[in-house]
């Protein structure tokens, strides 16, 4: 009885977190915010669901497999989110409006961001905007009162 209650509770919280992830990916304004909503809430939701599976089947093998799924999701989701975030930055899909800190910017200028063969750049990037980034979303003029 208490096992059933725990199963339903974990299953329900998993569904709730999954729904939160969907709402986040639907309503967030930016690729990076969408990515973090989907990654964190989605991983937690699916993890809760597999934990409820592990509790429902009172079996050692099933528990180990469910924990394996959880461990794998928790290991791979941050890596995948990191790669998608890098790709989004390289494409220029991150809106500058919501970026308070852009720590990847200096690094991207220094290494020309994963481009290997333009060391002999005729015009070196000066302190302004990096040459190849945010083509689609140029940095807007300073208007702080935007909310």
């Amino acid at each position: 009885m208490i096992r059933d209650l725990l199963t339903v509770l974990l299953l329900f919280s998993g569904g709730l977190f999954s729904l939160v992830a969907a709402i986040g990916i639907f309503r967030m304004p930016d690729t990076l915010t969408r990515m973090q909503a989907a990654t964190k809430a989605g991983t937690l939701g699916v993890g809760c669901m597999f934990l409820s599976v592990a509790i429902y089947f009172d079996d050692m093998g099933v528990t180990v497999r469910a924990l394996l799924v959880i461990a794998f999701l928790f290991l791979t989701a941050p890596v995948a989110a990191h790669m998608i975030g890098r790709a989004a930055y390289a494409v220029g899909a991150t809106s500058v409006e919501y970026n308070v800190i852009d720590e990847l910017r200096d690094d991207a200028e220094k290494r020309h961001f994963a481009s290997r063969d333009d060391d002999s750049d005729p015009d070196p990037p000066d302190a302004g905007d990096p040459p190849h980034f945010h083509q689609k979303t140029p940095r807007p003029p300073e208007d702080e009162d935007k909310d």
């Binding site: 990515m35 991983t43 669901m49 998608i84």
Partner: peptide, 21 residues
């Protein structure tokens, strides 16, 4: 953009895993 679609596909696959559970 394409990164948004990748994120959405990622989340849908996670939903499939949850549906399997």
């Amino acid at each position: 953009g394409l990164p948004d679609r990748v994120v959405a596909l990622d989340l849908i696959a996670m939903y499939v895993a949850g549906a399997i559970a």
